[in-house]
């Protein structure tokens, strides 16, 4: 298991250039989240929603928007990467790029969500920290699951089927923390610590298991 900084940066750069040219992954994530937001907002009209329900809706949208990451390994350069790149550089390079894509999505999604649902965030730092660590876990698990699902002949919906049970702990903790951040309830710090620990374990396990998949 080795990680070459030069290769790692090259993988991120390659992902960035390819996505700038094609833009399909990011645009589909963006449009999906906008469509989902519009659907829910139009359906409920001006009805008041409890913070727990709002948090659940936000994370459901994030989860389904993240399914666009299943294209991470639909890469015409994959054979070249296998010859010249080491597995860890590719895993972390693709993971960091997924994280950047998800962060860019959140820059659009979060303000739109708060405006459409007329939410007042009582504890913005906690909300931002929760979202950051939530999407870290999704990116880590999503990169490995994307590599797994790329081997399948029938892929329709496979990525979300495989991803959901793995990120369920993050999902539940994130809803809990987001709800607390919206209401300014006592922030469950233990939930935040648990989420960070689970993220770290997920990324570490993803990195170890990716070696078996790659070679």
């Amino acid at each position: 298991m080795k990680l070459s900084a030069c290769q790692f940066i090259s993988v991120i750069r390659k992902e960035f250039l390819i996505n700038c040219r094609q833009r399909a992954i990011f645009v589909s994530m963006l449009m999906f989240s906008l469509t989902a937001l519009a659907c829910i907002s139009l359906a409920i009209g001006g009805t008041f929603l409890e913070s727990k329900l709002l948090s659940a809706l936000l994370w459901i949208i994030i989860f389904f928007a993240s399914t666009a990451l299943d294209k991470t390994f639909d890469d015409e350069a994959i054979t070249t990467l296998k010859i010249y790149g080491d597995s860890q550089s590719i895993f972390f390079g693709k993971m960091i790029f997924s994280l950047i894509s998800m962060t860019a999505l959140m820059i659009f999604l979060l303000p739109t969500f708060l405006i459409l649902f007329d939410c007042e965030v009582k504890s913005p730092p906690i909300l931002l920290i929760t979202i950051f660590f939530g999407i870290c876990g999704i990116s880590g698990a999503g990169t490995l699951i994307s590599a797994i699902s790329a081997t399948a002949s029938i892929r329709s919906g496979l990525f979300s089927i495989l991803l959901f049970p793995i990120i369920l702990p993050i999902f539940l903790l994130a809803i809990d923390l987001t709800s607390a951040a919206l209401l300014n309830f006592e922030i469950p710090i233990s939930s935040l610590i648990t989420m960070i620990i689970y993220d770290s374990i997920l990324i570490l396990a993803g990195s170890i298991l990716f070696d078996y998949l790659w070679y």
């Binding site: 797994i148 399948a152 793995i166 689970y198 396990a205 298991l209 078996y212």
Partner: peptide
């Protein structure tokens, strides 16, 4: 891939 997924799911 099944083995990898099986081990990944143990984390939960």
């Amino acid at each position: 891939v099944s083995a990898i997924y099986s081990l990944l799911s143990v984390l939960t």
